[in-house]
């Protein structure tokens, strides 16, 4: 696990980047603050695979949990509601 930058419990921010091509980080979550819950292995980079390349080097993938209310300011449900999204390491920044 030494190759991974984050571990469970780390506060992270999803990069607020908007490249025009194929990515697997949903638009709505970019720029949001969350907490890593789990490292779920390193996988070939889908942003490379999508264009016919081999996806190497592999990218660490994390499950990241967000509070609904932090993602949607007008969220109508209870404050405890959350979402968990799978996000590759290169889409995450450390949050202080």
């Amino acid at each position: 696990m030494s190759e991974t930058k984050y571990q469970a419990g780390d506060a992270v921010k999803v990069r607020a980047a908007f490249p025009p091509g194929h990515v697997r980080t949903p638009h709505f979550i970019r720029g949001c603050d969350g907490v890593v819950t789990q490292y779920v292995g390193s996988h070939p980079n889908p942003e490379e695979l999508a264009y016919g390349r081999d996806g190497m080097p592999k990218k660490p993938l994390y499950r990241v949990k967000f509070n609904q209310a932090d993602v949607w300011p007008n969220y109508e449900g209870p404050a405890k509601d959350t979402m968990v999204i799978d996000i590759y390491e290169h889409w995450l920044e450390k949050n202080q």
């Binding site: 908007f18 490249p19 025009p20 949903p26 638009h27 709505f28 979550i29 993602v71 949607w72």
Partner: peptide
């Protein structure tokens, strides 16, 4: 510019 691609519909 914040490009949202058509298939990326979460939250709409």
């Amino acid at each position: 510019m914040t490009i949202r691609r058509h298939h990326d519909m979460g939250g709409l």
